[in-house]
């Protein structure tokens, strides 16, 4: 943790610095294409994309709808396989993995956060957070203790038995983030995580992501809001299935929050 924190701090002080040079690539895409067939038309959702994302990075993926950003996210989330090319996550090429192996990868390496939270109805927060552990191999024994810890981490330690209907939007998203964190993932993958939240709550959620990133988790956020993307250290812009912009710099926002935590 110290070394990761040191790297992050170093990158913040002497920004812009390419994180790839300081840490091994956690995600490596080379010549990835994704082609959908719709009737007799073929849609090239991703067109020969190559990309590396380093461990500990904080990336925002941007682009208009239809730009290929969601397709990229689905591939990084191991929910789908590329049509051609190679995509390695944590050193393993998902193109060659079975659907069970992909499920285990999603379970242990990736934490998902969604725009609509996707909490289970009529289920208390603690059980929401436990859910991924039920599918873990091997399954840990201390399910509840872990879930408690994660809920405390996102500031909901006193609301473990609340149902989604008893929580505000921001609180629901915090439960979803605790759920994403429960299995100690290397990647936190968030799809428009603030799309259903007001500005103030959005900012709080993004600060939480900044804190988690400062602790070493690689955070990837898909968004079309530049305000939200400003929290990230690296910005990838997609258009027509290609990356048209890849900027790295010190994050404009949340740096203080992250720094406070690290120091």
């Amino acid at each position: 943790m110290n070394s990761v924190a040191a790297i992050i701090e170093a990158s913040q002080v002497s920004a812009p610095v390419a994180p790839q040079s300081a840490a091994p690539a956690l995600i490596r895409a080379s010549g990835v294409s994704k082609i959908y067939r719709m009737g007799d038309q073929t849609v090239r959702a991703l067109d020969d994309v190559s990309l590396e994302i380093a461990k500990g990075d904080f990336v925002a993926i941007m682009g208009a709808s239809g730009s290929g950003k969601s397709t990229m996210m689905n591939l990084i989330g191991a929910l789908d396989r590329p049509t051609t090319g190679h995509l390695a996550i944590d050193g393993r090429d998902i193109a060659t993995m079975s659907s069970d192996e992909l499920a285990d990868l999603r379970n242990g390496t990736i934490g998902f956060v969604f725009q609509q939270f996707n909490l289970l109805p009529r289920t208390p927060a603690l059980n929401q957070v436990i859910l991924p552990l039920l599918y873990a191999h091997p399954r840990p024994d201390d399910l509840e203790a872990r879930a408690h810890h994660r809920l405390e981490q996102v500031g909901l330690g006193k609301r473990t038995d609340h149902l989604p209907s008893q929580l505000s939007g921001g609180q629901q998203q915090r439960v979803a983030i605790a759920r994403a964190l429960i299995n100690n993932p290397k990647i936190l993958l968030a799809d428009e995580p603030t799309g259903a939240l007001d500005t103030k709550t959005s900012e709080e959620i993004m600060k939480l992501f900044g804190e988690l990133n400062a602790e070493g988790i690689t955070v990837i956020i898909v968004t079309h809001e530049p305000d939200i993307a400003d929290f990230a250290r690296r910005k990838l812009v997609f258009r027509d299935g290609k990356i048209i912009d890849d900027t790295e710099r010190a994050p404009l926002k949340a740096a203080t929050a992250a720094k406070d935590r690290v120091l």
Binding site: D100, A103, N107, L120, L131, P132, A136
Partner: peptide
């Protein structure tokens, strides 16, 4: 949607 979520968090088929 619930099934989608379960698959996303690592449920096998």
């Amino acid at each position: 949607r619930e099934i989608g979520l379960r698959l996303a968090v690592g449920a096998r088929q």
